[in-house]
C-alpha cells in the first residue's frame, strides 16, 4: 500500500520511512537478543515508540540504524531488569520453535540458527549488531561501552565458537569446503 503523504508532517514521514526501512532488521536483532518472537515484537514496538519521542535527536539518516539498535539494546536491558528473568546458560536454553516454522528451516540455515542460539550473549550480541546492523567494531564498541579491541576479540571468538558448534574440519576453517 502506498504511503499517504498529504497532510503528514515531515517528522511523521521520516518516522514512517524509518519504520518501513528498518523494522525488519530491528526485529531480527531483537529476536537474536531475546530468542523469543513475542519479546522481540514487544521490544521493537517499544524501541520505535521511544524513537518517536526522541526523533529530533536523530540528525543523520545513516545513523538511524545504529541509533535504533542502541535504543533496542537498552530496552532489552530494561526488560530484563523489570522482569528479573532467570539467567540460564545458553546451552541449556530451548529456542521458540515458531521462529523456525518457515519452510526455510532446513539444512545449513537451521543448523547455523541452532548454533547461534547456543552462543553466549557476549558473543551473540556483537555478532548480531555486526551482521544485521552492519555496524563496525568501533560503532559496536561505542554502543556497548567497550574497547574496539575487545569487540574484535568477541567477534572473532563468536565465529570460532559457531564454527565449532557447526562441527567439521571445513567449518573450522571458515565455512563450506
Amino acid at each position: 500500500m502506498a504511503p499517504v503523504h498529504g497532510n503528514v508532517n515531515p517528522k511523521q514521514r521520516q518516522y514512517e520511512a524509518m519504520v518501513r526501512a528498518l523494522s525488519a532488521d530491528l526485529y531480527r536483532f531483537a529476536f537474536w537478543l531475546s530468542r523469543s518472537e513475542t519479546v522481540a515484537q514487544d521490544l521493537v514496538q517499544e524501541t520505535f515508540l521511544r524513537a518517536w519521542k526522541n526523533l529530533d535527536a536523530l540528525r543523520d539518516a545513516e545513523a538511524a540504524k545504529p541509533w535504533l539498535f542502541t535504543i533496542l539494546r537498552r530496552e532489552h536491558a530494561r526488560l530484563y531488569e523489570r522482569k528479573h528473568f532467570d539467567t540460564v546458560e545458553i546451552d541449556d536454553s530451548v529456542p521458540e520453535d515458531a521462529a523456525f516454522a518457515s519452510p526455510e528451516r532446513s539444512g545449513d540455515a537451521a543448523q547455523v540458527r541452532d548454533a547461534m542460539l547456543k552462543l553466549p550473549d557476549k558473543y551473540r550480541e556483537p555478532l548480531a549488531m555486526q551482521v544485521l546492523g552492519g555496524m563496525s567494531c568501533d560503532e559496536i564498541a561505542a554502543a556497548t561501552d567497550q574497547q574496539p579491541g575487545a569487540i574484535m576479540t568477541q567477534l572473532f571468538r563468536a565465529r570460532q565458537r559457531l564454527k565449532r558448534l557447526l562441527g567439521g574440519k571445513a567449518a573450522l576453517e571458515g565455512g563450506r569446503p
Binding site: R28, A99, A109, R113, A128, A171
Partner: peptide, 14 residues
C-alpha cells in the same frame, strides 16, 4: 561463504 550462510540464517522471518 560462511558469512553468506550466517546472514541468511540470521534473517529470521519477520
Amino acid at each position: 561463504r560462511f558469512e553468506d550462510d550466517l546472514e541468511a540464517a540470521m534473517a529470521v522471518p519477520v
